[in-house]
Amino acid sequence: MDLRIFTEPQQGADYDTLLTVAKATEDLGFDAFFRSDHYLRMGSADGLPGPTDAWITLAGLARETRRIRLGTLMTAGTFRLPGVLAIQVAQVDRMSGGRVELGLGAGWFEEEHKAYGIPFPAERMARLEEQLAVITGLWATEPGSTFDYHGEHYRLENSPALPKPAQAKVPVLIGGHGARRTPRLAARYADEFNMPFASITDSERQFGRVREAAEQAGRKADDLVYSNALVVCVGKDDAEVARRAAAIGREVDELKANGLAGSPAEVVDKIGAYAAIGSSRVYLQLLDLDDLDHLELISARVLSQLR
């Protein structure tokens, strides 16, 4: 089981904070550092000092880390044209020496689009499908050849399809709860399917849909990695769990029901239950980025038991 650290910087984190967490992620033995791609805080947080751009952040971290994988859960397809995003991700992959992964979604948070003047089209899933075709098509084009694409939403003509990523294949992550279109897109384009903030029962059902879609598309179902993203709140005792839950504005019972919360033993057991239905990777949503003791505890008492 891989454990990855997943951050939500739009809630209030500058680059220096993210760098500190990323370096701790690397030093403490976690597999990867991922971040959301949002420009507006959610809920009651003040969001200060303001948003950071996901791919600019990852470019900086690419030069300041050595081992960990770096990526997004999920880049919003509404934020960037697919040709531009293909260039950005390829460049950051080269800057990292081949450690980047691209999580790509349709975009959903309308308020942040209004706040920063970003179009929020109705046909986002149709656009996402074309974006996936464009990005993967550009990366797959042999050097010296050109790439053309004529879709309803995007047209590329005589593209040199450069630069190329450092990796022969940048892993593409697709996720979500959709019953039909999401599994189909994952089966066609994804290296990993991520189920965000879902129960074991719902995850198992959705994994089954993706596995079925993969087989219908002519792929082996096990070609894909199946993963979950879950909020994490671990403490050495009940008081520490309660303190950490209060710091992120959540209730302990709710976190235990819907995330990974409690003692290290409780969290290890619940991760094991997700592993039993086919999940081989968990993104730990770390909401208090100033609590590095939390990371150290998870490394020492949870990660160590899953290796």
Rank of each mutant, 00 (worst) to 15 (best):
L48W: 14
L132I: 12
R250W: 09
G272E: 02
V172Q: 02
Q88G: 02
A32V: 05
G278F: 01
G103R: 10
A13N: 06
F147W: 02
K114M: 05
R250E: 13
A168Q: 12
L3D: 02
D238F: 12
L286I: 09
A24K: 13
L58Y: 13
A245G: 03
Y15T: 11
G208R: 06
A198W: 05
L297T: 09
A90K: 04
D202V: 11
F109G: 00
L18C: 15
A300M: 05
G272P: 06
L292M: 00
V231Y: 05
A229M: 12
G137V: 07
F33N: 00
L70E: 11
E212T: 11
G98D: 11
K220Q: 15
L284H: 00
Q167E: 06
R69L: 10
Q285G: 04
T57Y: 10
H150R: 15
H177Y: 15
D37I: 00
K236Y: 00
V170C: 13
T136G: 12
V92F: 06
V89L: 02
F33E: 03
V92T: 06
G105I: 11
E152L: 15
A257R: 15
R35N: 13
L102Y: 08
G77L: 12
H38Y: 07
E130T: 08
I68G: 03
Y283D: 08
F79A: 00
A300W: 07
A54D: 01
L28S: 07
A122F: 10
G175H: 03
A190R: 10
G43W: 03
G107N: 05
D191H: 06
L128I: 13
S96A: 05
D37W: 09
Q305G: 07
P196K: 03
E130C: 04
R301C: 07
G178W: 08
V89C: 09
T78I: 15
R243Y: 11
A273R: 15
S199Y: 04
I174K: 01
A166S: 11
P49T: 03
A242F: 08
A90V: 02
A90I: 06
A54W: 03
Y274M: 04
S280R: 14
W139V: 02
A186H: 07
Y149S: 01
S96M: 03
V210Y: 04
A168G: 12
L292W: 09
G71Q: 10
R67P: 00
A261S: 15
L132S: 01
R307I: 08
E123A: 08
T72R: 05
I5D: 00
S299H: 12
